[in-house]
C-alpha cells in the first residue's frame, strides 16, 4: 500500500483512510456526550469529574489518530486550551469562595451547604459537588488533550502545519 509515490502525495495533501475518518467523525460526538454523562452521573453511580474529563480528552486523541495532529490541533487551538486549564481550577476554588461569601464570612470554605440555592441544606451539598466536578472535568480534559498534543507534535509536521 505505502509506495513511495503515495507517501509523497500524502506529504502534499493529508488524505487519510476514508473509513477511519468517517467512523471517527461519527464516534467523536458520542464519546463526548458519554463523557458529559459520566461527569454529571458521578453522584449516583461510578464516574465523576476526573473519569469524564479523561474520556473527553481521549476523544481528541481519536481526532489526532484520524485526521492527523495538525488538523486536530487547529480544531482545538492552544489559546482556548490554556484558558480552559485554569478555568476548571477557578471554578473549583470559586465555589469554595462563594461558600465563604454566602455563609456571611463564617470561613466555611468548600462547605457547599451554605450556597444560596432554593433547596434545603443537604441538596445544596449535592449540587455543589456537581459544580466542582464540572470544574475538575474541564481542567482534566484540557490538560489531557494539551499533554497529548505536545507529546505527539513533531517538527516535520509543524512545517506542514505552516502551509495549511
Amino acid at each position: 500500500m505505502n509506495t513511495g509515490k503515495s507517501e509523497t502525495e500524502e506529504g502534499k495533501k493529508r488524505s487519510g483512510d476514508v473509513i477511519v475518518e468517517t467512523i471517527s467523525r461519527v464516534m467523536v460526538p458520542f464519546i463526548q456526550l458519554f463523557a458529559l454523562y459520566v461527569i454529571m452521573h458521578g453522584s449516583s453511580g461510578p464516574g465523576g469529574g476526573f473519569q469524564g474529563g479523561v474520556i473527553f480528552g481521549a476523544s481528541f486523541v481519536l481526532l489526532v489518530i484520524a485526521f492527523g495532529i495538525v488538523n486536530a490541533g487547529n480544531r482545538f487551538p492552544e489559546a482556548v486550551n490554556t484558558a480552559l486549564f485554569s478555568t476548571g481550577v477557578y471554578i473549583y476554588a470559586g465555589v469554595g469562595l462563594l461558600c465563604i461569601i454566602c455563609s456571611l464570612g463564617a470561613a466555611q470554605y468548600l462547605n457547599y451547604g451554605f450556597l444560596s440555592l432554593p433547596v434545603h441544606f443537604e441538596e445544596r451539598r449535592a449540587l455543589g459537588m456537581d459544580f466542582i466536578e464540572i470544574g475538575v472535568g474541564i481542567t482534566v480534559m484540557a490538560v489531557i488533550a494539551e499533554i497529548f498534543f505536545n507529546l505527539a507534535w513533531k517538527k516535520e509536521e509543524k512545517k506542514e502545519g505552516g502551509k495549511e
Binding site: 458521578g42 465523576g48 476554588a93 469554595g96 451539598r125 449535592a126 459537588m129 466542582i132 466536578e133
Partner: peptide, 20 residues
C-alpha cells in the same frame, strides 16, 4: 449529602481540600 455514591461524597465533600 443526598448523594448515593460513597466515593463521590468522600472525594468531593469530606475530602474537598484534597481534591482541590
Amino acid at each position: 449529602t443526598e448523594v448515593i455514591n460513597m466515593v463521590t461524597y468522600g472525594l468531593a465533600d469530606y475530602r474537598g481540600y484534597d481534591t482541590l
